[in-house]
Design a protein around this nucleic acid. Structure first.
Lengths: 195, 195, 195, 195
DNA sequence: CATGAATGAGAGTTCATTCAT
DNA sequence: GATGAATGAACTCTCATTCAT
């Protein structure tokens, strides 16, 4: 029973996610999701009562996947610089991807819904990224790859820059060239250049 | 008279601005603006045909005011450091202000409407700020206050950080303490500390 | 079930027909039909998106009924003269009927909507009537009842006269006496009078 | 004074006529006429309170012009056949003209507004045409050009056929060829062919 | 559980008509 | 007289939400 219900919910989330990726958050109606999931109008209401509920569940799903990415990358035995580069490259890819991207919907959602800090998955994700970067930079400093006096400050700074790039990409638009420039600026601020 | 029409438009913009500050962009209906400006349904349509038109006019109004701020501050005969501090302080105030703030509406608007780069007032504002900061940093470097090898890179970087702080404030929420930390980080990256 | 939907559509068409008979075509709003059929605003839109769609369906319904009239009348074993008289009598009845009459709506509709010739049900009906009359006159000529050199010409002429009477009835108004006169004129042009 | 007012009214009628020729009757709004005549909204209401009033005045204007046509044509010293041909040719031209044509508007108007018989200008025009044709046919019969036992019946019949052609042209559409066929049919019914 | 027809509130938009200037 | 801004009623259409089956 519970299993079947979970499957159905999963199906709804998968279909709804596609809709949110296409239309952002605010323009999505229950009707859209009904149509995308080929479920009955009433049927959908058995599982979810609003697009908000659905979106929150999608978000939770997403966050879990992201978590895994971090833990994987750090487990490898590569240099801090390499991991940093990989991380930034991943961020860049995400940043420039136009389709199959929830960023727009996420921004629209969190701009419209004030979620209490404790439950805010975006905050959780942000803090985790800061924590990850902090550890990474510490590692880099220890290994002599990086120079940094305030590792946590640097970590936060990187995250804010990335946020800035992300929102700029969605509102103003940004060229790959400008993303590269900015990421390079970050790296140069950390890495000790060899002579 | 053309003047009377302009006055009325101004009245509409003023009232509508309040609405946008309260509700963001997407949730605002023509009816909301009709009620806020206390004119008739049909009356509003004499001047504007959509919330989008109204919002774009409000934006133009805002941008002009912002322009003035830049030109004023730089005209003064103060040190680069002081101007930078003033600029960041201003940004901080804007960042933390909850009410009387169009940021939310602006984000919602530009997330939902892809405006061609050339006409995008947000881009114009961003670029102008970068230009202003770049000149400011150059001045500071010349006067020996700042150390910076890539002034334009630094200027852009500051702007992305500020964007990051702004969107974070609106989506995750941010404490004054964290803003201060971040602004301090920026300043420390530039200013040569005296011993 | 498809059946239930069809029933509902039929109900809408029946109610809408009454409205069109009363108000013609152009003055009828979706609201009128909503009220007449006692369903909800949104409910109507489940079946039809405009008065035009509804009217076209009503028309199709009507045309089918008319078809049947022709086929019935001709199947009988009566003289051509008798069938012609029956046909004209039917037309006269239609012509003079004030209520329960779609003529006005039909005229308004086809004056306002240019329908491609191929799909124009009015044309179809006209052509079928010409065809029917042509065959009827041929039969009459063969049986020695009628005199006519150009049977198709006569058939078309009758139809144009009937159209003329119909539109005159709706715009200028026409007395039963004048209709009789005109129909008599038609008959006299065909029938060979015995001495 | 009165003169100036008459001029203004004439201006309104001229402009409104163009609008009615383009859009028919029912779709024309006071706004349309205001725009076409480049007069103020309130100004128009000083002279006319509805499109109906305006249309009726246009109609009166038109009818007067038509009257003249009849009186002219008959005054000439040409044969009845020639005058009939001229008359039909004129009707045909009118029939097939797509633009600069009030027919559509007239039909829409008289379908929507029941005008008392005595004041109905359409009826007046119809009756005058019957009277004219009747006299013409009588003349033709006297001169031996035509054969006709019931001249008034023939006159009425021609008018109904013409009405039929006119409404058919506007609703179903009609080819020039078909008009010719029908007019020929009329003429052949009257004219005595020489051997 | 599941369906989808039905409801009705509410957004957008247009225009006849009025009225202060 | 003449203007045109302003009003508000009315129409179209969409969707969240419910409920009988």
């Amino acid at each position: 029973m519970g299993d079947k219900s979970t499957q159905k919910k999963q199906h709804i989330l998968d279909c709804a996610k596609k809709v949110f990726m296409e239309k952002g958050y605010k323009d999505v109606t229950m009707k859209d999701i009904v149509e995308a999931s080929e479920i009955s109008r009433g049927g959908l209401y058995l599982y979810y009562n609003s697009t908000k509920e659905i979106f929150l569940d999608i978000l939770q799903m997403e966050m879990q996947e992201t978590d895994d990415v971090f833990s994987e990358s750090i487990s490898e035995e590569t240099s801090a610089t390499e991991i940093l580069m990989l991380f930034l490259k991943e961020q860049k890819k995400e940043l420039l991807r136009k389709k199959n991207n929830l960023t727009l919907a996420i921004y629209e959602f969190f701009l419209a819904n004030k979620i209490s800090k404790k439950e805010n998955p975006l905050k959780k994700q942000f803090d985790e990224a800061v924590y990850f970067l902090n550890r990474l930079i510490e590692t880099g400093v220890e290994s002599g790859e990086f120079y940094c006096e305030d590792t946590e400050g640097a970590a936060r700074n990187i995250m804010y820059v990335l946020e800035g790039l992300k929102i700029t990409a969605k509102t103003i638009g940004i060229s790959e060239e400008n993303v590269d420039k900015e990421l390079l600026y970050i790296v140069q601020g950390l890495v000790i250049e060899e002579e």
